[in-house]
Nucleic acid binder design. Structure first.
Lengths: 156, 156
DNA sequence: CATGATAGTTTCAAATTAAAACCATGTGGT
DNA sequence: ACCACATGGTTTTAATTTGAAACTATCATG
């Protein structure tokens, strides 16, 4: 049922998430969810995609635990779609995507929107990867390494 | 030729980049390129995808200015594929993807790799979005806003 | 009870993907 | 020169996915 990217690479830390969101529409749905959309019709109107595709994508997002259906917030008899904790974890990724888009997909004069701090109204900083001791790290400054065995994952 | 995501949303800062990389294989190719792979055969062996698909993806990456062909680095008569500046700009996005994967796609005891600072061998920090004055911002703390007209884009 | 809105599913044609076969070029051995 | 083989693709063909449109179901409203 769920698309599976062939072989052993599915166990890599990049390939496995791509199995869940590596699709043109899915991240747009998630972005709309961050923007407060909740209802099937809202997503469809916002994105302009076919209803069957939207239904399939929402099913997939739910199957992966990224979104969930909640009974209803207002009185309406229909369900709503909301991001789970896992789904909200996509925030940095969406920001990275937007910043990359802003940097490389718009001509200097071209109108576009940018992300601002709601409180002060100023543009946010560029995302940067930092080492444990605070140095900014570029592509050449990192390596992947087997994680130490059995460390309980600390979240929050 | 190039896939186009229907309508007005293509002008949004998230949808436009997804047109270039919103595909299951493309980011894996880019990740492999960050890991130093350069040759057609290397990508194919690493990812295990069909050669026609790899050729199509590489063409698309080149068309979008994310990778480029360079004549040859060693003596071999074949060309190599290398990331452009725009392609290297995907580094934070790949890191975000990996960190999200590490956090939500692996069971606590499950073996996986993590990203470490090459210099000190310690795991890197979690990516976090910060305001201009340094506060960490979550999904609710930001808004998108029309960019001020005509500001020359500063890079580097 | 008719009408419409919302939230889907079904149907079917068109586009995309994947596997495998094929081809083209250069290399190394004899 | 000839043969085998490695690399880097393209072509062909079948299977899968996508997308548009039609259809269905449920509730609300007049």
């Amino acid at each position: 049922m769920v698309k599976r990217i062939s072989h052993k690479n599915s166990s890599c830390g990049v390939a496995r998430p791509l199995d869940a969101i590596g699709d043109g529409w899915t991240l747009l749905i998630v972005r709309d969810a961050f923007d407060g959309l909740r209802r099937f019709g809202e997503f469809q109107k916002s994105l302009g995609l076919a209803k069957n595709i939207l239904a399939a994508r929402l099913r997939n997002l739910i199957a992966h635990g990224i979104m969930d259906t909640i009974p209803a917030s207002d009185g309406s008899p229909h369900q709503e779609y909301a991001l789970t904790e896992k789904g909200r974890g996509l925030f940095p990724l969406l920001v990275a995507l937007r910043q990359w888009g802003d940097d490389f997909f718009f001509e200097p004069g071209e109108a576009h929107v940018l992300l601002v701090d709601r409180m002060r109204g100023l543009p946010v900083r560029k995302l940067e990867l930092r080492s444990d001791d605070g140095r900014v790290l570029g592509p050449g400054d990192t390596v992947v390494q087997p994680a130490p065995e059995q460390t309980a994952k600390k979240r929050k």
